[in-house]
Design a binder for these strands. Structure first.
Lengths: 148, 148
DNA sequence: CCGTCGCGGTCTCCAATATAGACCAGGTCT
DNA sequence: AGACCTGGTCTATATTGGAGACCGCGACGG
């Protein structure tokens, strides 16, 4: 019953087949709606590199480009640049260039980014804590489905 | 100082140029390490569709395939299938088939998935709450960089 | 004085991935 | 009979990701 009610509640919110009410107020935002600006933002933030960058900045404080690259194993310069630009563009991260030689560029969290990073950090810790369980589940699943 | 210490602390953990200590204990997991199982798991979960699925199941309770597809605007059947399989494989989601006609398949959170969903849901709410601010930041950024 | 290194990127190419859309079985409804 | 429902899969095409080359600039080595 509870779940049915919840389902209907959300279903009512997103049944807008033709028009999009995103301009109405702050209440209209819905990450589940393809057209909603909040979904657009969400889609850009919800990838592994952006989340790892936020976690790294939250854990280790301001870092320069090469520090981030070394700290986040496996990230390419291209993806690091791209994700950082994205975070900067959305007002989550501040990019500061020190005109020295060789040039030094430092990235730091802005207040908005700090808020998000504080939500994302537990996710990383949870993943580390439960990784063993999930790996075991995967092996079990793969074994069960290998018999076909 | 605090940040420097933190940086060094994490740097110390990940400086393993050749060997990988992931088999040692449960403490060795590190999402920042390319080779770590926790990173592998993290990389599979940290995409928009998986997170939206978890959020939808957390908010609306058990749902069937087509309900999820309607609820998560813009998801293709292929990506929905793929992400659900992944969540099922890692022990986060339970898939139940009712052998009726037309067939009915219901997805629900397992305890492990519930834990993760409880961490992910605030992320969605935060995005909706701050979307306006981020869109504004993006317009400002784009305007500032259009003058080149 | 010439070559090389580090920094913070950009550019190019190729492989992998996402999306759109057709198709499927098998039963129901009209 | 023909259209429609379900929960998918398959295919073709567009987008994206990663590997590695290149770059300007100043310092440094021989």
């Amino acid at each position: 019953m509870t779940t049915e009610e919840a389902t209907r509640a959300r279903a009512g919110q997103r049944e807008e087949p033709t028009g999009q009410p995103e301009g109405s107020a702050e209440q209209g935002y819905d990450v589940f709606a393809r057209l909603c600006p909040s979904r657009e933002v969400f889609a850009e933030l919800a990838d592994k590199w952006s989340l790892l960058i936020l976690m790294s900045l939250a854990l280790c404080g301001p870092q320069r480009f090469s520090e981030l690259q070394r700290g986040i194993g496996g990230v390419s310069r291209k993806m690091l640049t791209q994700s950082l630009r994205n975070l900067e563009r959305s007002g989550l991260v501040l990019r500061t260039v020190f005109p020295e030689t060789p040039p030094r560029v430092v990235y730091d969290l802005l207040p908005l980014g700090r808020e998000l990073a504080d939500l994302v950090a537990p996710l990383g810790r949870w993943t580390e804590h439960r990784a063993g369980r999930m790996v075991a589940a995967r092996e079990e699943f793969d074994a069960a489905h290998a018999e076909d």
